[in-house]
Structure formats: C-alpha cells, structure tokens
C-alpha cells in the first residue's frame, strides 16, 4: 500500500514539474540542456540537473523497466511473501520503481554537490576491448567539473578536468540497495542481500555505459536487418582509386 501511494505521489509530482507552460528562460529546454552538456559541461546548472532528474523519473525506461522486471519477479515468485495476483505484481513493480527513483535521486543530489560530469564521454579508440574498458572505467571514475582550467569552459574537451571516483554513482547504487529495507521481508534485509541489491543497481550503470558506447553500432546492425544499407550500389570495378580532382 505504502509503495503504491509513494509511486503515485512521485508520478503526480513529476508530471506537474514537466507540465508547466513554456518558460521564458529556456533553462529546462531539451536543446539547451543538450548543448550545455555537449559543449559547455562546466556551465551545467543545478536547474538543468533538476530538469534531467525530473525527466528520468517519468521516462519510458523508468516505467517499462519496472513493469518488465516486476513481471519476471512475479513469474519467479520472488519474494514468495508478496504472493501472486495483481497485488503481488504491483508490489514488485512499485519496489523496482522506488529503487530506480532512489538511485536517480542519490545520483542527482551527489553529482550536483560534487559537480560531476553528467555526460557519458564516448571512447576515442576503435578496438572493441579498449572501448569496453573505457565504458567500464566511466562507472568508477568521472570528470570533476568544478576544477577545470578556464580554457575548458568554451570547448567540448574535458581532458584538463581532473578525474575522481564516481561518487554519485556509488551513492545512487547504495540508495537503491538500501531503500528496500523499509518494506522487504526481514529475511531479505541482511547486509548480504542489501549488498546484492546495491551490486545489481551498480550493474545497471555498467550495462548503461556499455550500451552508450556501442549503441551506434548496435542500431546500425539492427538497421541493416531492417533494410538500411540493403543492396547498396557497388562501385563499378572499372576504375581504381586515383587522386581526387573534383571541383571545389
């Protein structure tokens, strides 16, 4: 009951946050946020972080994930104390949504306070393993935007910003692991179980980073299956590559 009410309350509040009329100052504008994160990450404001946070709470991913994972848990009857039927399913879905919310909240609060980089920085390497290694490293260390050189303010590169542990992600994962203490059955509230839930949340960050790194390749692969690049016209074999001589 408490889980359901909490879920409904968060949904309602988040909807209000996004349902306001267009603001004259476009701080929360999707393009402005995207541009700031991409070109001027050091200028990323608290309000913009809050807008991104609000968006995360009501995104498709925020709902579809719990709906799907709640269904899986229902099939596995995990935990059996919550029973079956709609009541059991809603409890499982609510639990996962609340865990996701706690994760996002912890990450939002600490990344704001500590001025951590909000954007995933893709690898500049080409090899699979180096790119995977880069993706994994981003969940452990991140750029600290509070102490970059002045020249970084106007550039896309963050190379002069110091790196430090990704504390906000660690806090986010821990929040997700700990929040269930209020309603999980006692037998699932042991330190080991909490650690397992924290690890699972942290695994979400790992999966997200790897997906961000390879999403272009993944979609290109699926795109080919659905018709892109099909029957791509091949150059005639008559010519060999020569120096270009087209008009400029």
């Amino acid at each position: 009951m408490r889980t359901a009410l909490l879920t409904a309350c968060i949904v309602f509040m988040a909807a209000l946050l996004h349902g306001q009329d267009a603001p004259p100052e476009p701080q929360c504008n999707s393009y402005v946020i995207e541009k700031t994160v991409l070109y001027h990450p050091t200028a990323f404001t608290f309000k913009q972080r809050a807008c991104t946070y609000g968006g995360k709470l009501i995104s498709g991913q925020a709902f579809f994930g719990p709906l799907f994972m709640g269904g899986v848990a229902q099939l596995r009857d995990d935990p059996p104390e919550w029973g079956q039927g709609m009541k059991g399913y809603l409890r499982r879905v609510g639990t996962r949504y609340a865990q996701g919310t706690a994760k996002s909240t912890g990450e939002f609060v600490f990344s704001s306070i500590l001025h951590e980089n909000p954007r995933y920085e893709p690898s500049r390497d080409k090899t699979f393993w180096k790119r995977t290694g880069h993706a994994l490293s981003t969940v452990v260390v991140t750029y600290h935007l509070g102490n970059c050189g002045k020249e970084e303010v106007e550039t896309e590169s963050l190379s002069n910003c110091p790196k430090w542990p990704a504390i906000s992600k660690m806090v986010g994962a821990s929040s997700s692991g700990l929040v269930g203490l209020t309603w999980y059955p006692d037998r699932l509230n042991t330190p080991g179980q909490v650690l397992a839930r924290t690890g699972s949340a942290y695994g979400g960050y790992v999966a997200s980073a790897v997906f961000s790194e390879f999403q272009g390749d993944i979609f290109r692969m699926f795109g080919k299956l659905f018709g892109s690049d099909r029957n791509y016209p091949s150059p005639k074999p008559s010519s060999k590559p020569k120096p270009n001589k087209g008009a400029r």
Binding site: A4, T7, A8, A14, A15, H18, L90
Partner: peptide, 27 residues
Amino acid sequence: MKKLVLLLLVSLCLGSLGGCVHYGQFR
C-alpha cells in the same frame, strides 16, 4: 485491493493531465 488500483489509476490519470501540452497558438 480494488480501491488501491483505482487510486493508482486516478493518480496516474491526474498526473498525465498535468503533462498535457497547451493546444492552440503559442505566438
């Protein structure tokens, strides 16, 4: 249980209305 589901649905509907975009002229 039915009341809970009803409450959840009503909350969702009200929340969704809050996210509606104005229909009409902006400029």
